[in-house]
């Protein structure tokens, strides 16, 4: 029992269950899932479907944060991915075919990889702090996306493309299947091989891990490329779901949601410790919170206030300082410093 209470996933899962119960109390049909036209329908399915982009981006963000980095540019990368694929499909001679959709998606994926390479280059090779290095693309990225779409909202009507964000396969939304597949691949690659431990080692101490014989530079570079890839696929989902590329608003604030999901999931912002399952639960909590606000009839714009409160509470729970303040009072730092000087 004690071990269960101390497990780092216990509290996030408990919070998720609580949120779901709260919703069920206010809307009795909340938890029911029904089959319609061969697809599953219901609020739970909606949460999964709308949460898929956040889940994917949070997945990439988890590994970046585990290496003691941060990627602020994911929202902009998502916007660029949606912009390039939609612009390609819109301008192609055959805008409804599967081939066009496939090429559009490939271009977006390549763009995401390239932007990830760029971020990784700035962080791993040039050695700029991650928050600043990715800030460059966060600032310029939406401009680039607008450059691609020429400032317009590009609408496309291509059925295969639309399937990515809004389609169903075997009764389940395709977007969530993609997200789950990405999770499975990332889980296998990092937890069934040594890669996850290596990323954590870099996160704990990049210099020490390099001296221990790890190729810290390549590992750091890889996590940013992976984050760029995740962001690009998420951008495809977002644009496909609304069948349009909106350079200004696609993926706006999604980097904040993703970071929030990662933090809720128990991954330390200081690097060196991560939990993919925790991130999944965290992302689901964020999406359920958004849905709860709708269910309770609170104006949806107020969601931001709730998110802010959740961030603050989670950070306080994670902060060792807050715990010591609640428990035994530690000696203040100044006192310790004085003692050292006196000696």
């Amino acid at each position: 029992m004690n071990a269960l209470l101390k497990h780092r996933l216990t509290w996030p899962v408990l919070a998720l269950v609580l949120l779901l119960v709260l919703n069920q109390l206010f809307r009795s049909d909340f938890l029911s899932v029904r089959v319609q036209d061969g697809h599953l329908y219901g609020s739970l399915i909606d949460i999964l479907r709308n949460g898929a982009p956040t889940i994917l981006i949070a997945l990439g963000m988890t590994l970046v944060i585990a290496s003691r980095g941060i990627d602020l540019s994911v929202g902009a990368v998502a916007a660029i991915a949606g912009a390039v694929s939609c612009t390609y499909i819109y301008n192609s001679p055959d805008p409804t075919s599967l081939r066009t959709a496939a090429i559009g998606v490939s271009i977006a994926v390549v763009a995401g990889l390239a932007l990830g390479l760029w971020n990784g280059f700035l962080v791993a090779v040039i050695g700029i702090q991650p928050i600043i290095a990715t800030l460059v693309l966060m600032t310029a990225g939406r401009g680039l996306a607008q450059l691609v779409t020429d400032g317009q909202i590009i609408s496309v009507s291509n059925d295969p493309y639309q399937a990515i964000g809004a389609g169903f396969f075997l009764g389940l939304p395709i977007s969530i299947l993609i997200a789950v597949a990405a999770f499975a691949v990332a889980g296998l690659l990092t937890r069934r091989t040594a890669l996850g431990t290596l990323i954590e080692a870099v996160g704990i101490n990049p210099v020490a891990s390099r001296l221990a014989g790890l190729n810290a530079r390549t590992i750091t570079w890889t996590v940013y490329v992976f984050s760029g890839l995740c962001a690009a696929i998420a951008g495809l989902m977002i644009s496909s779901n609304v069948t349009a590329a909106d350079a200004n608003n696609a993926g706006l604030y999604i980097e904040m949601d993703a970071i929030l999901a990662v933090v809720i999931g128990g991954t330390s912002l200081a690097g060196g410790r991560y939990s993919l399952v925790g991130t999944l639960v965290g992302a689901l909590i964020i999406q359920t919170l958004t849905t709860t606000v709708y269910t309770l009839g609170i104006p949806p714009e107020v969601t931001l206030v709730f998110k802010a409160l959740v961030v603050i509470i989670v950070c306080l729970l994670q902060s060792s300082k807050a715990r010591t303040l609640l428990g035994k009072r530690k000696r203040p730092l100044t006192e310790q410093a004085e003692v050292k000087v006196a000696v």
Partner: peptide
């Protein structure tokens, strides 16, 4: 609480905008 300024002010961003 010794929390990183980046995450605290991010929460501030959400809160003020909300």
């Amino acid at each position: 609480f010794e929390i990183q300024p980046f995450i605290v002010t991010l929460a501030g961003l959400f809160l003020a905008r909300g």
